[in-house]
Nucleic acid binder design. Structure first.
Lengths: 173, 173
DNA sequence: CCAACCTAGGTGATGTGTCAACTATTCCCG
DNA sequence: CGGGAATAGTTGACACATCACCTAGGTTGG
């Protein structure tokens, strides 16, 4: 707003372009691998991983959305598509008439269990095998700092939108 | 394929999750800012920036696609949408009957010139203001290494797909 | 010359993400 | 108890990305 901020330095600009390129290509590569290997998208993978984290492979829609940090709407759309492919099912919730569960099907469980090792291997190969100990530490620090900044920013946008109202937000992992 | 690679270390997993979170939220934040400020998406912004990089604000479709590292199809769809909002126009190419130019309209130029400072300011504030000199250097090294790895990987996938055929690829940026 | 091929670009189908609006419960308070 | 507010979840419209395919104009070798 009252930004007062000029441009980026040469180096910042270079790093920024590399960052953008990286975050266009890395997900694309992971997606292709997962797609070829197991017929899954990255999003399918995320959903399935979260479901297998639970004992029964069942989770309430809102809990799953919070875990994934997705909007409920997005999850709802995605679950519809995944259900049509037999990876998950919807199930009514007896406790709360409004609620619903997302349930992992046997086919869904089999798919994720088959896909996970190769996917993790690809992540290791493409990202972590190239990095030294120091670089890993550094990357941890960098991601933490920028995420913190993002949270602060979201917070201040929120509080300036509804002045005087204060809330504490729950941080997901 | 013959990955032989088990899982990630605790720290790698933590960094990976932070990385994923960051690359979900940072573009979303930048998108919201740009949208509120100038009615542009990040993609619109990228297209407009590339066009303003040229003297006349005109570029051949394939050149623009290469500069953006987009598929021509994606660019074509996007240009259709942008043209409907008056930001760019298509123009026939007299040299080559197949070809076409994308041309920045005055409105498009005005929009990007108005939007750029605030956008760059947001990038500085959210990303670079938090980082030390050393972290910036480190980030440069990290992005270079992972991008190199990605290129190598794409290369080997390509060469294994069509054995015996060798090509050299042109690196954008 | 012309037939095979290559290149530039566009189109339609489908999967994905976001926003706003909607329905159906449940909660809460008078 | 009854009615408004909050909560759970879905839906529809639209922007975006990818894939497979299509058209039309150029290029080249017989």
């Amino acid at each position: 707003m009252d930004a007062a901020s000029p441009w980026l330095t040469e180096q910042q600009q270079h790093v920024w372009r590399r960052w953008l390129a990286l975050n266009a290509r890395l997900p694309a590569a992971l997606h292709r691998e997962l797609q070829a290997d197991a017929g899954l998208s990255l999003q399918d993978y995320d959903v399935l991983v979260r479901l297998t984290d639970t004992a029964e492979g069942r989770m309430r829609v809102s809990d799953l959305a919070r875990a994934l940090q997705w909007e409920r709407s997005r999850l709802s759309h995605h679950v519809t598509r995944m259900a049509s492919r037999g990876l998950v099912e919807r199930e009514e919730c007896s406790d709360d008439g409004r609620g619903a569960f997302i349930v992992l099907t046997p086919a869904g469980r089999a798919t994720i269990e088959q896909a996970a090792p190769a996917h993790v291997g690809t992540v290791r190969r493409l990202v972590f095998d190239s990095l030294s100990e120091e670089e890993l530490d550094s990357l941890a620090a960098i991601t933490d700092k920028v995420l913190t900044q993002l949270e602060q920013d979201a917070m201040s946008a929120y509080s300036s939108a509804c002045r005087g109202a204060y809330e504490y937000s729950c941080r997901g992992d």
